[in-house]
Design a protein around this nucleic acid. Structure first.
Lengths: 328, 328
DNA sequence: CTGAAAGCGCTTACAG
DNA sequence: CTGAAAGCGCTTACAG
């Protein structure tokens, strides 16, 4: 039989409600009583039943993380573990637990978060991916359930934490322009993702601003098999223009494919890739998107949102996490 | 106000207990009543409060995942996301949710799992790392709480899911021996991990069996900065014996360091690495440890254990996941 | 400063 | 085949 609050109350010679107040460290309880109750809790190795607590107080101290599809490239790149670490750090500091929602398709994930939201298992949700008209996002919006997106969203009133990917794409491109490059290629992931679109936009803006011509033969987008595509696109690229003098990739896997091609063909063309951590390739530079900060800020922000909702404030947060270009 | 079981009962003209029975799909309820109740649930968009359910039924349909330290190399290599995917697949199939426990040190993680276990927030725990005399393992053992280790343990009565790493080390070494190599080096991660120890043991056994001498100058172990160490150790290795004719590494980061060294020095020595997925390096071969299966089997096994404990059976499971050597 | 009572939303015997 | 009652372990007003 597990120890309940009644056992503690009996042992300390007080009522259960007093024990609750001691746990909440209410100032109305005398120090002497607090001491006695705490001693009893320790001696009996008391731990509150969190389900009971959540049932009555209707908060859980749990945050849900919505992950993209199983199959997603997401898991393959260092972004995910890094963001997770950031999230876990702040969660731990605030004594929050983390629950995760995955599933092989949208239906499964919708089920998972329905359980969390309607089942009152979490206080808020962080979406680790962004998609327009996402039915999961629709659900939490309608329920006015606290959530935020780690990434971009077109809806103007959704809280989010993200890099300025347009600026980052601009900076990356300008980095090469300032080095004197003028035939700069852009090899990105799927255009379905805003990250890709935005970085491309930045790339285009930089070219324009520096009076360089846009050439659609220099841009490529891979939906899958990023490494192979990186290789294949490089081939196409250099067949089209052997004088290509710089390559920007949006993902470290793509960068690997590109670098492999360049190595094999002994081409000495600088590559710059977006990546979060641990850039291992022979790159000229990379864009540090600071995924640890993305994770940390996401968690800090969701805690604020939960508080806001509780106090009937409706604030939309838009947190921009700085990126930086690191030369190697 | 959220919809409760009473609302459903009222709408369907039955008692709350009947609604519960319909949810549990008990055969004692008439089809006609079931139909009526289900209709009411749907119309009212009823979702049970899982905290209330857990409070009385004392099961949660949640499994806890214990992750190693924040800073651990763990997150850097593809093993983690891959295992997680396997776990998430089976969890989803069984309508289980996943909660994770991390923390920057042992104390934080102990806190996290105490909350889960004592707070009755999970039905069982999967440890994603193994360490001897782990206080967390001690806690769950003492509490007779369902758990298993994904990895090795010396304690004979702990359930676990793992590769046969001794055999895998043996196979990797024999692979090179059969190719005619005789000066085979072993570059591993920290000796604190059983994986490293076991793979080393297999390496040594293979050498012995093939009458090749053991030479401690050919073995290296890195506690951190795996890639740099891989590079540094390669340097030492080839200074010691320029005729080294094969290298085995236990980790893809180490392998990268090694490959970098070999490339730079134009050495054409075959490298074999342990790795789970997506081996991108220019390796001669790699050992597929099948981390997806590790994840899937872990989850299936913890479900069995939970059932066993409920029915007062105490069974210790030892699941071996096959590895295979893949030539490139 | 503290206690007694009511209740959170379920499920589980018990009874019919 | 179904309902009324009791209870899971907490917390929250209310009262003093």
């Amino acid at each position: 039989m597990p120890v309940t609050i009644k056992d503690v109350a009996k042992a300390a010679g007080v009522s259960p409600s007093t024990v609750t107040r001691v746990i909440q460290n209410k100032s109305t309880i005398s120090d002497e009583t607090k001491k006695r109750v705490r001693k009893a809790m320790k001696e009996l190795n008391y731990h509150p039943n969190l389900n009971a607590r959540s049932l009555v107080s209707s908060y859980t101290q749990v945050i849900g993380l919505v992950l993209p599809d199983d199959s997603d490239v997401f898991y393959q790149n260092p972004f995910f573990p890094s963001v997770l670490r950031g999230i876990a750090q702040i969660a731990s500091e605030n004594h929050y637990a983390i629950q995760i929602a995955t599933g092989k398709d949208e239906k499964e994930r919708l089920n998972a978060i329905s359980q969390m939201v309607y089942g009152k298992r979490v206080d808020g949700l962080i979406f680790l991916y962004a998609q327009e008209n996402d039915p999961l996002v629709k659900l939490v919006t309608e329920e006015q359930f606290p959530f935020l997106i780690l990434g971009k969203s077109l809806s103007p009133f959704i809280s989010l934490v993200d890099n300025d990917n347009i600026q980052a794409g601009f900076d990356a491109t300008e980095y090469f322009i300032k080095k004197g490059c003028s035939r700069i290629a852009f090899i990105g992931g799927t255009k379905k993702l805003y990250v890709t679109q935005d970085r491309l936009t930045g790339y285009e803006q930089a070219l324009k601003e520096h009076k360089l011509s846009l050439d659609s033969h220099r841009t490529f987008f891979a939906d899958e098999f990023l490494e192979e595509k990186g290789y294949k696109f490089s081939k196409q690229l250099f067949e089209y223009d052997p004088k290509t003098d710089a390559v920007i990739t949006t993902d470290s896997l793509l960068a690997e494919g590109v670098c492999n091609y360049l190595n094999e063909h002994q081409l000495n063309v600088p590559v710059l890739s977006f990546d979060s951590v641990n850039p291992k390739l022979n790159l000229a530079a990379y864009v540090n998107i600071n995924s640890l900060a993305l994770g940390r800020t996401s968690f800090e922000t969701i805690l604020q949102i939960i508080n806001d909702v509780k106090e009937n404030r409706q604030i939309c947060y838009r947190q921009v996490i700085a990126h930086e270009i690191i030369e190697k």
